[in-house]
Design a binder for these strands. Structure first.
Lengths: 217, 217
DNA sequence: TATTATACCGAACTGATGTTCTTTGTCAAT
DNA sequence: ATTGACAAAGAACATCAGTTCGGTATAATA
């Protein structure tokens, strides 16, 4: 990425910071007069002039002749993210190991988790939900206590993906890496120190695909 | 969370969708006239009226008497996120196992990683950087090949946190959970199946703290 | 049919907002 | 001192944008 060809002055830098703070605080860009007041610029024409310089320096972009048209390039845009409903907990007991949330839980979640759009691919928003891992029962899937697991319903099956697998004969749902082999599934724990095993495709249902895992520390 | 007390009509829903799309596309809210044109509303006063209804229904919020003051509540705001510079790779060889990026790498990164602000706590933006894990050398820290590790310089030491630890006698830097015990560090692999071990505090340097780990699948 | 209430349209209004232009101030070279 | 080049201030302007309001159409009610 190219560095600014033009050095910017201290007051221009201060103005840039103000615009950035304004966007972060208000969620939308400021007007020229907001900038003038907030960054203590002496006149509107100076605001306009500084904006030209900041644009040349590659720090901002803006739509001319349109209100609140300025944006700081280093800031993410709303379209870079999605919000995913938090719908419950992955526990180690089989019955509710990996819950499938109902419509109500999806619409009225306990919480909303912001996730970078680049992490969830082309998934439809309404197919995504988040679960919190509890205990170390998912350690074979390299998922730790407290991890956030973003799941996707209505996935396309992709060999080798990590899925919530319901094993009907064991009455148990866990996360495993899945490979299809004729009428059998090969279920491979994510931890390479553990051995894979096979189950009959009829006794295994793929309830959702893991889209990403997030661990706050 | 309270459900909408008022059912919204189809055209109101269409208007809501238009506003949402506008924000996602343009990064800022639309004007009333944008909405009128884009969502095919017959008059400006109808736009205003529908906005009142959508606000009552809890779908939007807006600043009155201010241009482009409407926001769709289900959309994240720019302030919900930060962008972290991508500064290299964690490999299994000791020397460059967990690199500490220089100023230039921080300012001109290969890439920018969007991260939810709630994940990075109160860290200063300039202290954060991202590394990509390569190989399974970090598996003891529950970090997988391809994982994104968000690191923080200038951290406050917190007992039991995950740190990039430089072991000078081994000439090796790895990620371990660290507990202080007098003049010794207790280094505990994240994987509970592995045993912790002790090192002298003088031969171990904490280079950075792991703030969060993100795994795309 | 007459009445009332409600939804809706469109124009006009008022303040907000980006742009332009003239004037003023500063500084260096002549 | 004079001039020219440049930066900066402030007013004026044209358009943008949210609000208001009188009027019309539609539907329900008596």
């Amino acid at each position: 990425m190219a560095r600014p060809t033009q050095r910017i002055t201290e007051s221009q830098q201060a103005m840039l910071s103000y615009i950035q703070d304004y966007i972060l605080t208000n969620g939308r860009p400021p007007t020229f007069r907001d900038i003038q007041r907030g960054a203590n610029i002496s006149s509107l024409s100076m605001v306009s002039h500084y904006l030209d310089i900041l644009r040349e320096a590659g720090e901002i972009e803006f739509n001319e002749s349109s209100s609140r048209g300025v944006w700081v390039k280093s800031l993410p845009k709303p379209g870079d993210f999605v919000r995913v409903p938090m719908c419950g907990v992955i526990t180690c007991d089989g019955e509710h190991g990996v819950p499938t949330p109902d419509a109500d839980a999806l619409r009225n979640p306990e919480d909303w988790i912001p996730v970078a759009r680049s992490l969830v691919g082309n998934a439809k928003l309404e197919d995504l939900y988040a679960l919190r891992a509890r205990g170390d029962s998912m350690i074979d899937a390299m998922i730790n206590d407290g991890d956030l697991v973003i799941m996707r319903r209505n996935f396309d099956y992709k060999d080798g993906g990590l899925y919530a697998v319901m094993l009907s004969d064991r009455n148990e749902t866990t996360l495993k890496r899945v490979f299809k082999d004729g009428k059998k599934f090969k279920l491979k724990p994510e931890n390479p120190r553990l051995e894979p095993f096979w189950v009959d495709a009829r006794s295994a249902q793929l309830q959702g695909r893991v889209v990403c895992v997030v661990r706050a520390m």
